[in-house]
Nucleic acid binder design. Structure first.
Lengths: 229, 229
DNA sequence: CCAAAAGTGTTTCACGTACACCCATGC
DNA sequence: GCATGGGTGTACGTGAAACACTTTTGG
């Protein structure tokens, strides 16, 4: 059913940069295109915004369609609106970035489905459209935001050893952190709950597990607390 | 000349939050609507994005049409895409915020033109659409960004006394700053050039004028310098 | 000479940073 | 018993914050 407007309109899409944290690496979920343009190239998951559908809802829908995962951290990144970013016509894309827990089985499943795969940020293939630029913007946003907002926890399982949290910051910030100073600082914030549990299946002394307490964090924020690494 | 598409498309607009700094106040430029919906209401300047026109170019064009000023600081803020934000149909709007020098004569001129006026941020009239939300988002962005990026200078004339700079931060951050600490800090950054000029036409001791040295700032940034107030 | 704002130093305290060893566990 | 990572405290330096008086100028 065709639709007619008095004035021409750019098309409107969403693209999602989905970050996950592997044992060693920061990874991104990419989709292999099977249609022109850029058939065969890897690209960010995304698609068209339906009329009557909120843009963030469209992003979440596309994300769920591509990765099988809902209920993830999703935040608007930037809107890319250069007229030549799609060779076919003027397509404006609202980009989002998502943080998912790779420990989540449903995310794992998406990997085998329809030409989707996780790529290390250090080894990204040639991408379609202006997706290199979008990915770069997302990476920068993640790097700066992780320092003053507790979004890193979105990449970890609900219960984690402090070592995993430190490793996360080291990978994202690309520098080493001092173990004692890190523990001192993160514990002194009072946003982690120390659990009565320890790691299992490790070939050395098992570490204590912690949980991020969002309620404590929200309470502290109201009192003027500033999270900062 | 009508345009037809296979699938329905949301309309795409830009809205601009234009901030200026009065002697005392942070102000925003608003336009009074003369068409329905919201005829008579005040609203943010903005308009439709043309096909083939980059979104940021559209924002700059609309801004120039409404305020008569080009070459201002303009940055993308956020994209608002709720389907009910315009009562007529689904209109997605990419919002920008601009910082202008009210000392600029061309900006002053815009005030008398076609129902445009500057409003103090403490005294905003009822606004059309979801513009209160956009304005609030812009205000928060300005408040947080001004602390770690030297964008405040965009609101001042090229040559200014330190007092004006401090006042700017006090107005935007909504708290008083210590004069000695402020001067010490900002001067120690080494991004201001001390001029051989002083204020004129003041009824008291005239203050020395300074200029923001963007080149020095850029050089320092390359060396890892972080601007922060 | 009075009003109004310009300009200037020091002390204190909190926090970031650097740094090394013993402990618990699995194999 | 050895390899592997877990867990812990202190000393130092930098930078933020608090704080008050003298100087200059115009009217």
């Amino acid at each position: 059913m065709p639709h007619t407007y008095k004035y021409a309109r750019p098309a409107l899409t969403v693209d999602c940069v989905v970050f996950g944290l592997d044992k060693d690496d920061l990874k991104v979920l990419l989709i292999q295109r099977d249609l022109e343009p850029f058939a065969g190239r890897w690209a960010l998951p995304g698609g068209f915004v339906n009329v009557g559908e909120a843009v963030n809802v469209a992003a979440r829908r596309e994300l769920e369609e591509e990765t099988g995962v809902g209920r993830v951290f999703l935040e608007q990144l930037y809107t890319f609106g250069a007229p030549d970013r799609d060779p076919r016509e003027h397509v404006v894309s609202v980009a989002y970035y998502a943080l998912v827990k790779l420990s989540d089985h449903r995310v794992q499943a998406a990997t085998d489905a329809r030409h989707a795969a996780w790529f290390s940020m250090d080894d990204i293939p040639k991408l379609a459209f202006d997706h290199p630029k979008i990915l770069k913007t997302a990476h920068e946003r993640l790097r700066s935001k992780v320092r003053y907002q507790p979004i890193g926890f979105e990449l970890l399982p609900p219960r984690f050893p402090l070592r995993a949290l430190q490793h996360l910051y080291e990978v994202i910030l690309k520098r080493e952190l001092d173990k004692r100073n890190f523990r001192k600082k993160i514990l002194s914030m009072g946003v982690l709950e120390e659990l009565d549990e320890i790691e299992t299946d490790v070939a050395h002394r098992a570490a204590r597990l912690y949980r991020f307490e969002k309620r404590k964090y929200n309470r502290l924020v109201k009192e003027g607390f500033n999270f900062e690494i």
